[in-house]
């Protein structure tokens, strides 16, 4: 390619001297990738950091469940009919031997709670990854291909969404029989559709963007456009949805276990621990059986939800809670539009 000197009477070369605006240079925004920006915003968000710490703690506890169980000296499914139950057969409350009390069969609530965390988290992660994978694939295909493919896939999404989920889930479980695998499959079955819907919508709007048209005019194949131009722009909604899906999956699993259709006892899950608390109104005599599993469940789901919210704010500062910041970005947009 020839090297023309663009030195015509106008000074087009001057254009790049102050280039990046003085402000961004001053605050050091320049040359940072979008990912770094998001990370620095998250680091300065106390809510996000606290939630992240809670989640990490729970994960660590779950991983070291056997260790803790060994330290305490109680197995998760071990029944201590003597120590854990009063002479009349009622569970004992929190004491120095049973940190959070014992359940109706004299098992250590604390140890069971940690084992329950292990199960809840594994189910939630596996189901979330599965649902995200299927949802992204289906949504992207529908949005990108459009036409008949889109019509069929959208119909599947809508039908799945209009199914009475829990009813369908329990009849499904009743047929196949409750187990860990069934639980994961059922959660995926009812979680992929909302993701696919979001991804499809995003894909539809991305494929109308000029940069996709530009890629097309350069001769890029559909496959390349999907990979290089569409997928990176889907990362944000997928990531946000992913963090918000984890708590939903935890709740779903707990609900199934509560109804006796999730992971079966004696394996401890938060859902079947709560089911034990509600059977025969046990919680009226042993409040700890209701309070601790509920609190654990709430803490973890809340932490994931808060983190998801923060991640979304950090990824898209226009959505942030703080009004003034919002307003100014809007003003800037307006000024650009002028």
């Amino acid at each position: 390619m020839p090297e023309p000197t663009v030195d015509a009477p106008t000074d087009t070369t001057l254009d790049n001297q102050p280039s990046v605006s003085a402000a961004s240079a001053r605050t050091g925004v320049a040359a940072r990738s979008p990912f770094q920006l998001v990370w620095s915003r998250l680091r300065h968000d106390p809510t996000a950091m606290v939630s992240a710490v809670v989640i990490v703690l729970v994960i660590v506890a779950a991983i070291s469940a056997p260790l803790i169980s060994g330290l305490v000296g109680h197995g998760p499914d071990e029944q201590f009919r003597k120590e854990g139950l009063t002479p009349s057969g009622l569970p004992t409350g929190p004491n120095d031997q049973f940190l959070l009390g014992a359940d109706n069969l004299g098992r250590d609530l604390f140890v069971r709670l940690i084992y329950g965390a292990q199960l809840s988290l594994i189910v939630a992660f596996v189901a979330t990854v599965g649902a995200l994978g299927i949802g992204t694939l289906v949504g992207m295909t529908a949005g990108f291909m459009r036409g008949k493919v889109d019509t069929v896939l959208t119909w599947f999404m809508d039908t799945t969404l209009s199914l009475p989920q829990l009813l369908f889930a329990i009849s499904l479980v009743s047929l196949v029989g409750p187990s860990f695998g069934t639980t994961v499959v059922v959660i995926i079955l009812f979680s992929w559709a909302p993701i696919a819907r979001v991804v499809r919508g995003q894909t539809l709007s991305i494929r109308e963007k000029e940069f996709v048209e530009a890629a097309r005019s350069l001769g890029a194949s559909n496959w390349r456009i999907m990979r290089v131009d569409v997928l990176p722009n889907l990362v944000v909604p997928i990531l946000v949805y992913g963090t918000l899906l984890i708590p939903q999956a935890i709740v779903f699993e707990a609900t199934l276990s509560f109804l006796g259709l999730g992971v079966l006892p004696p394996t401890a899950t938060w859902g079947n621990m709560l089911a034990a608390a509600s059977t025969g109104s046990m919680y009226t005599i042993a409040w700890w059986m209701l309070v601790f599993p509920s609190a654990a469940l709430l803490c973890v789901t809340l932490a994931f939800n808060l983190l998801g919210d923060s991640v979304r704010d950090a990824l898209d500062p226009r959505q942030t809670l703080f009004a003034k910041k919002r307003r100014v970005t809007k003003l800037k947009k307006k000024e650009i539009a002028e």
């Binding site: 254009d15 001297q17 102050p18 605006s21 402000a23 961004s24």
Partner: peptide, 10 residues
């Protein structure tokens, strides 16, 4: 006019 419009943060 050479250069870019100024930033109001400046």
């Amino acid at each position: 006019i050479p250069g870019q419009p100024m930033s109001l943060l400046d």
